[in-house]
Design a protein around this nucleic acid. Structure first.
Lengths: 244, 244
DNA sequence: CAGTGGTCTAGACCACAGC
DNA sequence: CTGTGGTCTAGACCACTGT
């Protein structure tokens, strides 16, 4: 009697409850029957029912409180999962040839420009930091301009890497997996050296992404990615989902 | 013996395994001991161990395959959760006064411009659709220009709503909770009527968000949100996380 | 076909939060 | 105090997949 149907009990019950929530039969604030009752209704053990309800709570569809019971959650603040693709993949998915072109590579203390461009906080990059600048090319056309600082105190091996051949973002992801990142997005009018490098007229709209990457409580790297706006229409695509 | 410590077995074991993955003791590809062995090691039942491993798999840290066992996952394609705030909250968080200003409200078939601006697909908006245009104001300054089309076949009640008073996005979220959305982001140079309405010079960089909202397989609404880029520096902020 | 995870159960005790 | 969810167990059978 473990798996009587091809579909698991989990899935069957999950779908049933989710349907009622999504189609409005159970509106936000609606109180669900208690765990034991639901278990009886669906003819499963309390443990199985608990697994379903716990999952629903994790997915943000219901909130559960002792003594109170399980109620349909208020609709979440709208959120979305943004897939930030590897730039190489992004280019190659478009059927183009990817190439990385390192522009500069310096081990030095930060300066005022770094701090402004990359939004460095505190004494981050004050010492033992590697400053890189490079272009991601698509069919030998500029696709994305990257400024980056790497914390050598955390990513020790970065000293010995030849970033003319290794793409910094890719190398870091390989070397230091399981990092966390904070991102900021905005649209800016490009100008000066950035415009020249991206071969864009001064004033062209670009999407700027600032990314701060951490592992545990140590900062690993800051990156500033500049994408031409109009040229590459679809910059990011993501789907709504309930909070995890 | 249910909860011997103040911390649950789940949490304790979860933390222990996660630590080894994050600090690199167990690198991507590393094979974990099998479920039964881990259960013995930690002195818990197999069910409890399974709950932990299942959670780790859901969080994307490990992959589990029958016969193969549990291995540390390859680092995820970088993804992030973007919180798309209610525009009113966004403005009021900045300590400013929010106001909604409806510019136009028409029940009519779509035209070529709608289709282009909002990226309508198929015959969406071909009939029974409500077309809105309005400005979100912050201290009586334009903050975001919104174009929207609502599917009256799904959101019937929208006919009777006075969208001079109700903000469409807010009303829809209240009325039709548990929708899904697909988003597209890009930077554009603003011009023409859009520039005039946002009181920006032609050519200013703006962040354009196209949002398609669905419930089940029915489209509910398309929205195009245009934010001045330079003026409102921080448009979006989100944190990295493993895939759910 | 054998080893691994996937699922399920019946019963139990605990912890929290209203009453 | 009592009712609710939170957690846990020992044992069981099933399903997938590499050999």
């Amino acid at each position: 009697m473990a798996t009587p149907q091809s579909e698991t009990h989990h899935a069957r019950i999950m779908d049933d409850i989710l349907r009622r929530i999504v189609d409005g039969t159970w509106k936000p604030g609606h109180q669900l029957p208690k765990e034991v009752e639901l278990a009886e209704t669906y003819g499963v053990s309390r443990m199985t029912m608990n697994k379903v309800l716990t999952q629903l709570a994790q997915d943000g569809y219901v909130t559960r409180r002792k003594r109170i019971g399980t109620v349909v959650a208020e609709p979440r603040a709208q959120s979305a999962v943004l897939a930030i693709n590897n730039i190489r993949d992004e280019v190659e998915t478009l059927g183009r040839v990817y190439r990385w072109h390192l522009l500069s590579n310096e081990q030095r203390p930060r300066n005022a420009q770094d701090q402004r461009l990359l939004g460095l906080e505190g004494d981050e990059g004050a010492r033992d930091a590697l400053f890189l600048q490079g272009l991601h090319m698509s069919n030998d056309e500029p696709f994305c301009l990257e400024h980056r600082v790497i914390n050598l105190a955390v990513a020790h091996d970065a000293r010995e890497v030849d970033f003319r051949k290794e793409v910094p973002g890719h190398w870091l992801l390989q070397t230091m997996p399981w990092t966390n990142a904070r991102h900021q997005l905005r649209a800016i009018n490009i100008s000066g050296r950035d415009a020249t490098l991206l071969r864009l007229p001064s004033g062209a709209a670009c999407l700027e992404i600032l990314r701060k990457t951490q592992i545990e409580s140590n900062w690993v790297t800051y990156a500033r990615l500049l994408y031409p706006g109009e040229a590459h229409q679809l910059i990011a695509e993501f789907e709504g989902h309930p909070g995890s």
